[in-house]
Simulated assay, not measured.
Amino acid sequence: MRKILVGSALFACLLLSGCTRNIFTLPVQENPEALVRFNTPVQYDYNPAHYPVTIENFNTQGEPEQQNFTKPPERVVAVWQNSIETLLALGVGDRIIAGNGVPDKKFFRKEYQEQYSKIPYTGLQLLDLETTMMLKPDLIVGWHSTFAPKVIRPTEFWHKRGVNTFIARSSMITNKKRTLENEYKDILDLGKIFDKNERAQELVGQMQQEVQYAVSQTAGFKQRPRALIVEFLGKDVNVYGERSLAGDIVRELHGELLSPKEHNIGLEQVVDLDPDVIFVVVIESHYGREQDMVNRITQHKALKNLRCVKEGRVLPLPLYAIYSAGVRSYDGIKIIANGLYPELYKEK
């Protein structure tokens, strides 16, 4: 395997978190048997009447751009968890020739782990340009940062070579507000691209039903639960505001988001806010150590007397569930709904 590049977004997260592991020791895993399958002609079932399909996505400059598909893609490079897992959930994992940006299959839901294991190239590190081109993809799915000039190259580079691209809407730097609607739209668009409309509607419907359940069951509540969403970045505590996906989920679930502007906050200010529930965002380098992150709130001497601490309403919230989350938006909805309305979910 040639020189490998690490995605800038995750690399930045790891640096900011103070993680000491050497991510360059996590090589891309190659599955020779799966690669043989990709080099053997395969006829995928689809309805020709559903094509051509045109969707609106974005280019590297953040401008809306039309993407045209005359048939479902057959050789897909997918970058980051939301891209890979959404495709697996749609039932097109057998089209993924490289799924990178995730350290291990344990990060995926159990029902998708076997499919992930059958992808020819997997792992945290991204393939370099030469290797990616040799794989002859017809679609690359990722974040806005994936298509930076020094990462996998701009969208224009690929379009000139007949390769379509798909950027998750919430990952766009120009996107001023990240919403559940963005996640729904991504899933539905990918469903159209692969002629998996029914499955896409099912996935989105599950999320919408979960939101509606919480809203309908709490319609008579006189006071909305007050939520604070924080993330530890070294010694700093960052608040997730109303423009974040997590903030939008709180709003959709009829909760009140405290400190709606994204900024750093002192722990003494948390005491003044006295939230009903605190969600602690857990980034990639701390997966598996969620309780340690929660303990930074619950065991802090200045915060131990907060009502939410005493009531056990300080909950970990994985980054994969609230940032360009794709199908994992469902996890974000469930976690936040449980935190806002614990009495509602005791028996569910």
Rank of each mutant, 00 (worst) to 15 (best):
E198A: 03
Y240A: 15
R226N: 10
G241K: 06
Q208N: 04
A214L: 15
G266T: 07
H254C: 08
G220F: 07
Q217W: 01
V211K: 04
H254P: 03
E198Y: 05
A227I: 05
D195Y: 11
A214Y: 01
N264V: 10
D186M: 05
V211E: 04
M207W: 11
T179A: 05
D248I: 02
W158E: 03
L257F: 03
I152F: 14
V270C: 09
V237L: 14
Q206H: 15
N182D: 15
Q208E: 14
R199C: 01
I229P: 00
Q208G: 03
H159Y: 09
L188I: 13
I152T: 14
I265E: 07
Q206N: 11
I152S: 11
I265V: 00
F232R: 04
G220E: 10
L233V: 12
R161Y: 12
S170D: 14
H254L: 09
D272V: 08
N182V: 06
E262W: 03
R199D: 00
R161V: 05
E231Y: 07
V239N: 09
P225I: 00
I229E: 08
Y240F: 12
D272C: 00
G205S: 06
L203M: 14
L203I: 11
V271A: 14
K176N: 05
E156V: 13
R199T: 12
G191R: 00
V204S: 01
T179K: 02
W158R: 00
L258S: 13
G234C: 05
R224D: 12
G266W: 03
I173Q: 14
I187F: 01
D189W: 00
N164A: 15
N182T: 06
K196I: 01
Q212G: 08
G241Y: 04
K185F: 09
G205T: 06
D186H: 13
H159L: 14
V270Q: 10
K192Y: 01
T179Q: 00
E156Q: 15
R251D: 06
V237W: 06
R226M: 09
F221E: 15
R226S: 15
N197K: 12
R243M: 13
I193W: 08
L258I: 10
S170I: 07
F157C: 00
E183L: 07
A219N: 14
V237Q: 03
S216D: 14
L180I: 10
Y184T: 04
L273E: 06
Q201N: 11
T155A: 04
K177F: 04
L273F: 11
L267Y: 14
L273M: 15
V215I: 02
N264K: 14
Q209C: 08
T155L: 10
L228D: 07
Y213D: 12
R161E: 02
F232W: 13
K177A: 15
L203V: 09
K235T: 10
E256F: 09
E268A: 11
N182W: 07
Q212N: 01
L257G: 06
T146Q: 04
F147G: 01
M172S: 06
